[in-house]
Design a protein around this nucleic acid. Structure first.
Length: 454
RNA sequence: GGAGGAGUGGCCGAGCGGUCGAAGGCGGCGGACUUGAAAUCCGUUGUGGCGGCAACGUCACCCAGGGUUCGAAUCCCUGCUCCUCCGCCA
C-alpha cells in the first residue's frame, strides 16, 4: 500500500506511475481507454475527500458525546431530589448523539473501505531507471555471464530436461498426475539428492552472508498474503486457499518471512534484519496453460530458499541492499556453473509491491533460450505500510526520539529447486545421457553424476 | 478431539459501568550525587488518524469483531491466541 499523502499531495504523480504500471483498478476504467489512469486516481481522491469530511463530522459528534457524559457524571453531585430532572434531558441528548454517531461511523467505515479497496490495489512507485513498458522486449538486459555450451562442437544433440529426466528415471510426472494432478511430480533417485543439495548449498551461501536461517510454515493467513501484496481471491489468483479456514498455501516464503514482523516497531540497531527461509511453494498457475508448460519449468509445487531483508526506511539503504541481493543470486548461479543474463524488469511487469525488480535468467539449452530462475525485488515501504512494520529513529548522535518510519522490505530467490533443476539437467548433461553434478553440490549430494540406472 | 483457565502499555501487573490512555513495578531515556561505576534520588517514557506552517487541538486504540448502555478496559455473545489436565499421535 502506498502513502495516502501521495494521493492528497501528488495525485498527478500517482496517475503517471499508474500509467507506466498498467494496473487496472476499476472494471469500468480499462487500460485500453485514454486517460484511464488519471480518471482512476481522481475517483479514489474523491472517495478520500468524502471520507475525511464524514470522519471529521463524526469526531465532532463524539466530542459532544463526551461532554454529555461528563455532565451526567456531575449530576450525581446534585441533591438527590434534583437528580432525576437533571438527568432526563441529558439522556435524551445522549440518545440523539449516539444515533447520529452510529450513522456517521457507519458511513465513514463504508467510505474508508471503498477507498482502501481501490487504493490498496495501486502499485508501488517505480524506480526512475526501471525501463518503461509492458512487454518482454521492454526489460533491460544488464549483463550476461558465462557462455552456453556448444553441443555441436561436442558432437551431440542436447536433450531437454524432460527427456533427460525420463531417460534417467529421476522425475515421475505420470505418478504426480495420478495421485495429485497435472503439473505435480515426484522427484526420484539422483534428482532427490540434487534437489536437497541445492537447498543445502543455497542455505550455506545465505548463512555466510549473514542471513538468519528459517524453515517457515507452508501456510499463512489471508491477511498476511494481502499485507505482502498478494491477492488470494478472484478468478486469476495464483494462490491456493484452504477450505473452511482463513489459510492459504504460500507461493513463496516471502509471505511467511515478511509477516514475521507485522505490527512490530524495531530498533534501528537491529537493522538490517536479514532472513533466509526454506519453504515449499504452491502456485495455481491459473491461465498459464500452454505456455512453457512442459516439464519442471512451471509446476504447482516446488521448494525454494528465499532471501529476505528488513532495512531502514531509506531509498539509498534499500537500493544498496537490493544490489547486494542480486550479487548473492549471481554468486549462486556462477557457482552452479550456469550461464545466465540479468534483466532489469520493465514497469508494466513489476507486480504491485515492487519498486524495482531484477530477474536472473539461466540459459536453457532445451528451449534454446534464457528462462527465469530467480527474481529479487525492492518493495520499499509498500508492504511494510500494510503490515505496520516500523523502526524507530533518533535525531543526531543517540539523540531524542524521532518519528517512527516504515521499514523497507526486500526479497530475492536464493534458489528455486525446480527451475534450477531444469537448468542443471540441461546445461550439465553429458553425451552419454548422464548429468554431471556441479562441483559445489557434490559434497552435499554425495554423488558426482546422475547416471542411467542399470 | 474433550474439560477448565487466561488475554491490559517494551515486560510484569492493578483496575466499583462515569473522574482511565489507564495505578504500581521493571526496563529505557534525561538529570543530580560519584574520580568512574553501582546504589540512591528527581524527571521523563505507548501507537496511529484528522485539522494546523507551528505551538497545539481533537478522535481512536486495554487480543479481534459484534451487542447492551446516556456512558464500557470494566457487562453479554462470537472468533482468535496462549496455559493446564485428559485422549490421540509423527
Amino acid at each position: 500500500m502506498l502513502d495516502l499523502k501521495l494521493l492528497r499531495d501528488e495525485p498527478q504523480r500517482l496517475a503517471e506511475n499508474l500509467e507506466h504500471r498498467r494496473a487496472q483498478i476499476f472494471d469500468d476504467l480499462p487500460t485500453s481507454e485514454g486517460g484511464w489512469a488519471q480518471a482512476t486516481i481522481d475517483r479514489i481522491a474523491a472517495l478520500d475527500a468524502r471520507y475525511r469530511d464524514v470522519l471529521a463530522e463524526g469526531e465532532r459528534v463524539r466530542h459532544a458525546q463526551k461532554e454529555t457524559s461528563e455532565a451526567m457524571r456531575d449530576v450525581g453531585k446534585l441533591p438527590k431530589p434534583e437528580q432525576a430532572a437533571a438527568r432526563a434531558p441529558l439522556v435524551e441528548k445522549g440518545r440523539e448523539l449516539r444515533d447520529r454517531e452510529r450513522e456517521l461511523t457507519t458511513e465513514a467505515e463504508t467510505l474508508q473501505l471503498e477507498r482502501d479497496e481501490a487504493f490498496a490495489r495501486l502499485p508501488n512507485l517505480t524506480h526512475p531507471d526501471s525501463p518503461r513498458g509492458h512487454t518482454d522486449d521492454d526489460h533491460r538486459e544488464l549483463r550476461k555471464w558465462g557462455t552456453p555450451r556448444d553441443f555441436a562442437a561436442e558432437g551431440f544433440e542436447p536433450k531437454d530436461h524432460l527427456q533427460l529426466a525420463e531417460a534417467l528415471d529421476i522425475v515421475d510426472f505420470a505418478a504426480g498426475a495420478k495421485v495429485t494432478g497435472n503439473k505435480f511430480y515426484y522427484l526420484k533417485h539422483g534428482a532427490v539428492l540434487l534437489d536437497l543439495a541445492l537447498q543445502r548449498f543455497a542455505i550455506d551461501v545465505a548463512q555466510k552472508h549473514g542471513f538468519a536461517l528459517h524453515i517457515t510454515p507452508d501456510l499463512a493467513r489471508v491477511e498476511m498474503l494481502q499485507g505482502l501484496g498478494f491477492n488470494p481471491r478472484g478468478e486469476s489468483t495464483q494462490v491456493y486457499s484452504v477450505e473452511r479456514s482463513d489459510l492459504c498455501l504460500v507461493g513463496t516464503a516471502e509471505i511467511t518471512l515478511g509477516g514475521m514482523l507485522a505490527d512490530a516497531i524495531v530498533e534501528p540497531s537491529e537493522l538490517p534484519l536479514l532472513l533466509c527461509g526454506l519453504s515449499h511453494c504452491f502456485r495455481t498457475e491459473a491461465g498459464a496453460a500452454g505456455q512453457e508448460s512442459r516439464g519442471l519449468y512451471r509446476v504447482h509445487q516446488f521448494t525454494k530458499v528465499e532471501l529476505f531483508a528488513f532495512v531502514e526506511g531509506d531509498l539509498q539503504v534499500s537500493e544498496t541492499m537490493h544490489a547486494r541481493f542480486l550479487d548473492i543470486e549471481e554468486e549462486i548461479f556462477q557457482a552452479l556453473e550456469l550461464p545466465y543474463r540479468v534483466l532489469d524488469i520493465a514497469s508494466g511487469d513489476l507486480g504491485g509491491p515492487a519498486y524495482r525488480k531484477y530477474d536472473i535468467e539461466a540459459w536453457m539449452p532445451g528451449r534454446g533460450a534464457y528462462g527465469e530462475v530467480t527474481s529479487t525485488s525492492n518493495c520499499t515501504d509498500y508492504q511494510a505500510r500494510r503490515l505496520r512494520i516500523r523502526h524507530r529513529t533518533y535525531d543526531g548522535d543517540g539523540g531524542s526520539k524521532g518519528k517512527n518510519r516504515f521499514c523497507h522490505m526486500l526479497n530475492g530467490t536464493a534458489v528455486a529447486t525446480s527451475r534450477a533443476l531444469v537448468a542443471i539437467f540441461e546445461n550439465h548433461q553429458q553425451a552419454d545421457g548422464s548429468i554431471a553434478i556441479p562441483k559445489v553440490l557434490q559434497g552435499f549430494a554425495g554423488i558426482e553424476r546422475i547416471s542411467p540406472r542399470t
